[in-house]
Design a protein around this nucleic acid. Structure first.
Length: 192
DNA sequence: CTACCGATTGACT
DNA sequence: GTCAATCGGTAGA
């Protein structure tokens, strides 16, 4: 159980990966601690023509993971918080999928402690909120998500979502017209 | 070292 | 809906 998705899943166009990521399970272990969640909202960031991508201006120290192998994490800091991406396409091709929201499945008590709130809807709704709930920070930047340790994604036996909605991405200040946000239409755990 | 910025969030009207 | 607090990362002096 909780078999990690392998690199062939990630080594594809980020739009395809983004759509198929919906309904998948994110797993985080820290010693005995376990948290899992169902992915309900993602955004794709493209290798070409996407001025909102952190890789748009080329390789930097911060975005180096986006140029790394598929199936690794890209964790960046923004507004004093962290956000988690999965890297797609082959090494040196900078594309990724941002995980924006998940539905908590297990380890709720841990998430409440890490988030300092017991309001279920605020635990994992939003890219930085879910990182806090899952204890994801820059130490996991570049982490290999295919080895099934500490942090990975799995099919988790959860059925694929029936209704997928598409919209423009949230918060970006350029490439505003690109509809690269994918979410499960009827989930209550969507970010605003 | 200082100066700025942001793929956000929480508080507030 | 609006707004600004927050701080890691980066660029530049």
């Amino acid at each position: 159980m909780h078999e990690p998705l392998d690199s062939t899943f990630y080594d594809r166009d980020p739009v395809a990966v983004a759509r198929e990521l919906l309904g998948k399970t994110i797993v985080r272990t820290m010693g005995e601690d376990l948290t899992t969640g169902r992915i309900v909202e993602v955004e794709a960031y493209l290798k070409h023509g996407d001025s909102a991508s952190h890789a748009y201006c080329g390789r930097r120290r911060r975005n180096a993971s986006m140029f790394g192998p598929p199936g690794h994490a890209y964790v960046y800091a923004i507004h004093a918080r962290f956000c988690l991406n999965v890297v797609t396409e082959p090494e040196d091709v900078p594309s990724a999928v941002l995980i924006r929201a998940v539905e908590p499945l297990s380890g709720l008590e841990l998430m409440e402690k890490r988030r300092s709130t017991d309001r279920k809807l605020n635990l994992t709704r939003g890219p930085a909120r879910l990182c806090e709930a899952f204890a994801v920070d820059r130490s996991l930047d570049g982490w290999n998500l295919t080895i099934g340790e500490q942090l990975w994604l799995t099919n988790g036996g959860i059925p694929a979502p029936k209704q997928i909605a598409i919209s423009v991405r949230i918060g970006v200040t350029s490439a505003k017209d690109l509809r690269l946000r994918f979410f499960i239409n009827d989930s209550r755990y969507i970010s605003r």
